[in-house]
Design a protein around this nucleic acid. Structure first.
Length: 267
DNA sequence: AGAATTACCTGAGCGC
DNA sequence: TGCGCTCAGGTAATTC
């Protein structure tokens, strides 16, 4: 699924391609995604220009003069840029048709994605207002993580996947960051030491940053802004060997999410 | 307030 | 071949 690095790479590509373009019309083929597509969306966007493309966690934020278009790609969603009109296929839910004839098409088999229209700056929209700091911003560091974990006994993996704690850390990168920091995913958050929090915050920043940098060296294909070729250390390797000690990785479930870790390297 | 649970959705992979 | 089952998981909503 598109994780934060893929969303950031998508954002960069869209920023290059869309800024200044004028939206001619919006075609809504599937009015019910994860959230209902706002009925006023099409009319609100008509003849508006894209002023900027931002990101908050995994949400893409399009400043469209009259308001803000907020999109989440969910688990299986991706955006495709087409040079001109093309017949829609299965799961092509939305088209943004620009004045120059090009089309931004939203495709999402599982419909976990969402499209939101906001009259006020996207960051102030209720759906985004309550989410935590950006993991790649200065506001997210070990001291912050230490502070917010004091009163919580929830497993640390669930803590860092909690959007109100930190924005956009999904299952893949939560697994990877905990491995890198040497912390067991099921540790109660309140058991983390100062040093643990420093290592964990640094690890989260590193895995995301490296993934963005690695992915950006590849051409982002029009049709497949999705996975990029990072070799994960633990995620998806539940039957494999630890890259650090060679021992067998173990898997479990936390919050109904697959969790992989090395019982020797992580404590 | 914090924690736990469930719903949403469909393609892929599996056993039989 | 095809059926039925399980799994994948970000976010929102609900409940305790």
């Amino acid at each position: 699924m598109p994780e934060l690095p893929e969303v950031e790479l998508t954002r960069r590509r869209l920023e290059r391609e869309l800024i200044g373009k004028r939206i001619r019309r919006v075609i809504v083929r599937t009015p019910r995604l994860r959230l209902p597509v706002p009925p006023e969306l099409a009319a609100s966007l008509e003849w508006r220009r894209v002023r900027s493309v931002g990101r908050r966690g995994k949400f893409l934020l399009f400043d469209c003069e009259a308001g803000w278009l907020i999109m989440h790609l969910g688990m299986t969603g991706f955006l495709r840029l087409l040079p001109g009109p093309a017949l829609p296929g299965k799961h092509d839910h939305l088209d943004f048709v620009f004045a120059d004839g090009s089309v931004l098409r939203f495709h999402d088999p599982r419909k976990f994605g969402s499209v939101i229209w906001s009259d006020e700056p996207a960051e102030r929209h209720p759906r985004l207002a309550g989410i935590g700091p950006e993991p790649l911003s200065a506001a997210f560091d070990g001291a912050y993580l230490f502070r917010v974990s004091r009163t919580r006994r929830v497993a640390v993996k669930l803590l860092i996947m909690n959007m109100t704690i930190v924005a956009g850390v999904g299952n893949i990168y939560a697994n990877e960051a905990l491995f890198r920091a040497g912390i067991r995913p099921d540790r109660p958050a309140s058991s983390l030491t100062d040093a643990d929090c420093e290592r964990l915050a640094a690890a989260i920043r590193e895995v995301l940053r490296e993934s963005i940098d690695q992915g950006s060296t590849y051409r982002v294909e029009e049709s497949a802004v999705a996975y990029h070729p990072l070799n994960f250390a633990v995620y998806g390797r539940e039957n494999g060997a630890c890259t650090r000690c060679g021992g067998a990785l173990e898997s479990t479930r936390l919050g109904n999410r697959s969790t992989v870790y090395c019982p020797r390297c992580q404590s």
